[in-house]
Write a protein that binds this DNA or RNA. Structure first.
Length: 419
RNA sequence: CGGAGCAUAGUGUCAACGGCUAGCACGAAUGGUUUGGGACCAUUUAGAUCGGGUUCGAAUCCCGAUGCUCCGACCA
């Protein structure tokens, strides 16, 4: 985690608001704006403020860990894309891709702002892929994608400019590709588990395109979602409405009567690309039999901001946000009512113990306001130091989600937060 | 892209009959009293999306633009 040097609330330049903007209907936008996690620049375009950016980074760190565990290598490509590159696959055409933001150099040379990076990475890795010894490998990035959506909606869940983790795999043949694809699925499942939406997230069969029967989406059951899926609870898989036919149900060995229709948000998707892009862009290698073959590719995406939005939609309550410990901006929110010097000691103790702490060190702010803020911001643990707790020589530890409350010593609190 | 709704201080406002100085709350500022659930008092701060039109007079009525939200289409 990139560590903020100062986690005192008095130094935080944002603050919470009592009211949400009136023309925001979606829960995630209302809460995230009210709490100062994000700023809406315009419809479908959001800036991340200190607290929100910490959450984003924690989500991206989890994704990064899982991608690295797959052996994928992190890179950073460019948003600016050449027209010629995209013409090789026909995807420059507005009739074929209607989400392009297009622009041009001063001299008139057309450019596009990338909405995905299959073409770019395929062309980019070409000089490095020479023989079967160059393969397999995979690479990923966290990159800003631009999509000129005709209608942005649902707060940060569907935006026109957003960070996406996109991973691309390069394999010698279909078998090698499949092996990676399986591993990627497991990694994806771990990611959703770790950010706290594993229980509501289903691997969902969706249309596969030219080279494979299905692609796989990860759909989180959520009212703010845009997709309709049919869930088999026992096998924990689902079918996207777009391919929901008797043939597909039979193909997957499911029983129509057992499937339950649900609204869901697509939090990730993975698909096999076959040799579509390697053929179009000439990504070939000399195999051990001396033959030239096209590289078999796969592509795997996750939108961290959409994950964040789904977590808000799923876990928050009437008092505000509730973050799982794994992605909370801070694990603990330290509040003192008086006792400033001791609070500073505790603040240092907590941080020394490796706990991310937001310390509400504001003076002249009444307890009620501090508590209301703590509830709104939604750190998993609230640590209160006051006259009342002082009598016990300890602190009051409250769990945001369950409301469970105990008086413990500061060391006891550290132990409980670590659990 | 088709349809609908909305637009008043930083935020909120089913506040204001076509007519006096655009009200109230939150926020912010100053001073004071407070300190376990957004406390109180005093003083202060800050507003009509833009452009046309109707009218003696427009926040209010009309037209247009823009923006936002929602429904639908789209989402490789």
């Amino acid at each position: 985690m990139n560590d903020a040097k100062d986690m005192r609330q008095s130094h935080l330049f944002t603050k919470t608001q009592k009211f949400a903007p009136k023309d925001e209907v979606s829960k995630n936008a209302q809460l995230l704006i009210r709490t100062g996690f994000v700023h809406k620049e315009m419809a479908g375009v959001y800036a991340f403020l200190p607290l929100g950016w910490r959450v984003m980074n924690k989500i991206m760190d989890i994704i990064r860990e899982e991608m690295n565990a797959l052996g994928a290598q992190e890179i950073q490509m460019t948003a600016l894309q050449r027209k010629e590159l995209w013409e090789t696959t026909g995807r420059w055409d507005d009739a074929k891709v209607d989400v392009w933001f297009k622009t041009a150099l001063k001299n008139g040379t057309p450019l596009g702002l990338g909405f995905t990076h299959e073409e770019a990475i395929t062309a980019m890795v070409k000089p490095f892929v020479t023989s079967h010894r160059s393969l397999p490998f995979s690479a990923y990035q966290f990159q800003t994608k631009f999509r000129n959506e005709t209608r942005a909606k649902s707060g940060i869940m569907r935006s026109r400019e957003f960070i996406m983790k996109d991973l691309y795999s390069f394999s010698r043949d279909v078998i090698e590709h499949k092996a990676f694809y399986e591993k990627a699925q497991a990694a994806y499942e771990r990611i959703f588990q770790r950010v706290g939406i594993g229980a509501q997230t289903y691997k969902t069969f969706a249309s596969g395109g030219t080279f494979s029967k299905y692609s796989h989406e990860y759909q989180t059951v959520c009212d703010a979602g845009e997709d309709i899926i049919y869930v088999d609870e026992k096998r924990r898989i689902a079918i996207n409405e777009e391919v929901y036919t008797d043939d597909v149900i039979a193909d997957l060995g499911l029983v129509k009567e057992e499937l339950v229709q649900k609204k869901a948000a697509e939090v990730g998707n993975i698909f096999s690309l076959g040799t579509k892009f390697s053929d179009a862009l000439g990504l070939i290698f000399r195999d051990d039999d001396g033959e030239n073959k096209s590289v078999v590719m796969g592509s795997y995406g996750i939108g961290p901001a959409r994950l964040m939005g789904v977590v808000v939609e799923l876990l928050s309550d009437e008092r505000g946000l509730i973050w799982p410990q794994s992605i909370a901006p801070y694990q603990a929110h330290l509040i003192n009512i008086g006792h400033n010097d001791e609070a500073e000691e505790f603040y240092i103790l907590l941080r020394t113990a490796g706990i991310d702490v937001l310390w509400d060190d504001r003076k002249n702010v009444r307890p009620g306001e501090k508590f209301a803020d703590a509830d709104l911001i939604g750190c998993p643990w609230r640590v209160v130091l006051s006259d009342k707790t002082h009598e016990y020589g300890g602190v009051e530890l409250t769990h945001r989600r369950t409301g469970e409350q105990t008086i413990v010593s500061i060391h006891g609190a550290i132990t409980m937060i670590h659990q």
